[in-house]
Computed example of a mutant assay.
Amino acid sequence: MAEGAHDIGAARTAPRNTPARVSVWAAVLGVGLIAGIFLTPMLWLMYSGFYTFFVFVSGLVAVPAGHLGRRRGKRLGGVDRGAALLGIVTG
């Protein structure tokens, strides 16, 4: 029983790379907005300024957060470094 309790505690104290996860979510949002532009041409014509603004903002969030995530991942032994790189590339 002591082993099982130790495993649960270890899962809670695992290092997290939050900037990498923020980068991935921002990149996913940007890709989703670009897909929305192509899938809904009428909405694009009506709300082009909003789409453009949100695509630009998601890229502005994804790239710096990805760089922070890569740096933090290096200190954490490689945790989520690939996810951070994905955020940089798609951002």
Rank of each mutant, 00 (worst) to 15 (best):
W44Q: 04
L45G: 07
F56I: 06
P64E: 08
R81G: 13
S48M: 11
L43T: 08
A65P: 00
S58L: 04
G82V: 04
Y47G: 00
G69P: 01
K74T: 14
Y47K: 02
T40P: 01
G32E: 11
R81Q: 14
R71G: 05
F53T: 09
L43H: 10
F56M: 07
R71M: 13
M46W: 11
T40W: 10
F50W: 11
L68P: 00
F38I: 15
L68M: 14
L68T: 02
Y47N: 02
A62Y: 12
K74D: 13
L68I: 15
G36I: 06
A35W: 13
L45F: 09
Y51N: 06
R81S: 09
P41G: 08
V79Y: 04
F53Y: 11
K74A: 15
L45P: 00
V57W: 01
Y47D: 00
T40E: 12
V63F: 14
S48F: 09
M46K: 12
R71Q: 04
L76H: 08
G73I: 11
T40D: 11
V57E: 11
V61R: 07
G59A: 05
I34L: 14
L33Y: 11
F38Y: 14
G82D: 14
F50V: 02
G77T: 06
A35H: 12
P64C: 03
G36W: 03
M42H: 15
G78K: 07
L60M: 11
A65L: 04
V55I: 15
K74Q: 15
R75C: 01
G32A: 09
R70S: 10
S58D: 12
V55D: 07
G77A: 03
F54G: 00
H67A: 15
G73S: 12
G82T: 12
Y51P: 05
A65F: 08
G77H: 03
R75D: 11
V79A: 06
L60S: 05
K74F: 10
T52I: 00
S58Q: 09
F53W: 04
G36R: 06
Y51K: 02
H67I: 13
A62M: 02
G78Q: 09
V55E: 01
R70T: 13
L60G: 12
G66L: 08
L43D: 15
S48W: 10
G78T: 05
G59D: 06
S48Q: 06
F38L: 15
P41M: 08
L39R: 04
I37G: 07
G49V: 00
R75E: 12
R71W: 03
W44E: 10
K74N: 07
P41K: 06
R81H: 07
G77V: 07
V79L: 03
Y51E: 01
P64M: 07
R75A: 15
L39I: 11
I34S: 12
T52D: 01
F54P: 04
S48E: 13
A65Y: 04
M46V: 10
M42F: 12
H67R: 14
F56N: 09
V79F: 05
I37C: 13
V55A: 01
G73N: 09
G32M: 10
G66Q: 08
V61W: 04
